[in-house]
Design a protein around this nucleic acid. Structure first.
Lengths: 142, 142
DNA sequence: GCTTGAACCTTCAGTGGCTAGAGGATGTAG
DNA sequence: CTACATCCTCTAGCCACTGAAGGTTCAAGC
């Protein structure tokens, strides 16, 4: 029988986050002591590890919900899990492409600033005038 | 004299977002018509473009506030703007490194899934057991 | 058995950066 | 002068947590 604190340490998830996962139905309601404290077992530890690991890989909580559901039904075809992972991969690749463009632009800004007064600062100049950009970049909401 | 809608179109910022920027003090309070509608001039268009462009480059609104402040005081040394850009560049590079590890892992998951039942699905298996991962990855909070 | 104090409980509010919607007022073209 | 696109304010919601207030429970040590 594990306390929430133990679960927290074992998975690297904050206590509040575990309670939050329970609140939104991602974690099941655990058993309680007479005094009302949560007590977990091994299967709940596994489930939280799954969630945590999926989050580290960038899956949204909604995607994780689906993945957990699939994981709970071993006889269903796994195309769906595969599709979710593929979507995530695609998103990661898009983000990388955007970050690459961004990095180019920032590098250019930093290299051109020679350390005078702000009036001559290339950093600010580039930010003022998008037309100076060599790349398309669109980080907002990435 | 530009309406908020015109400003919105010219900068690619949603009308509500412009009002939000005003609310948090990033954009100045514009003039109003007798009826109470906002009217902008060219300098406000420039300011919004600056903000928008900075957001696209991944700067936080707080960082943008600093940059705008620097931009408003042309006689100060520009080390600070330079430092902000450098910090941002560092962050972008860190994010890219993380995404790279993530992509590797996702690719491996997807490639190894041969499309059977969820019981045998490599995607789910990898998510269940972090020790199968070949890379360190930590997307949370990225 | 009793005391201490770390860990637990609930509830609420806040983060960043918007975005959506309700319900009503204004501005402008025909 | 009418139609209706655009504007206004205000409130609430999004994601995925995180922190804090104020109170309770549990386990170890005496």
């Amino acid at each position: 029988m594990l306390t929430i604190g133990t679960l927290s340490k074992k998975t690297g998830t904050k206590v509040q986050t575990i309670r939050y996962y329970e609140q939104i139905g991602l974690m099941p309601e655990p058993g309680r002591t007479e005094g009302g404290q949560r007590r977990y077992d091994g299967s709940q530890l596994d489930r939280l590890s799954f969630i945590r690991h999926s989050r580290q890989l960038g899956f949204s909580l909604d995607a994780i919900r689906e993945l957990l559901d699939l994981s709970d039904h071993p006889n269903r075809p796994c195309d769906e899990a595969d599709a979710i992972a593929r979507r995530q991969l695609k998103r990661v690749e898009q983000r990388m492409a955007r970050l690459k463009a961004l990095r180019t632009e920032l590098k250019r800004m930093v290299h051109e600033c020679s350390g005078g007064r702000t009036a001559d600062c290339r950093v600010l100049e580039v930010l003022r005038d998008h037309s100076e950009c060599l790349t398309e970049h669109d980080e907002i909401g990435a």
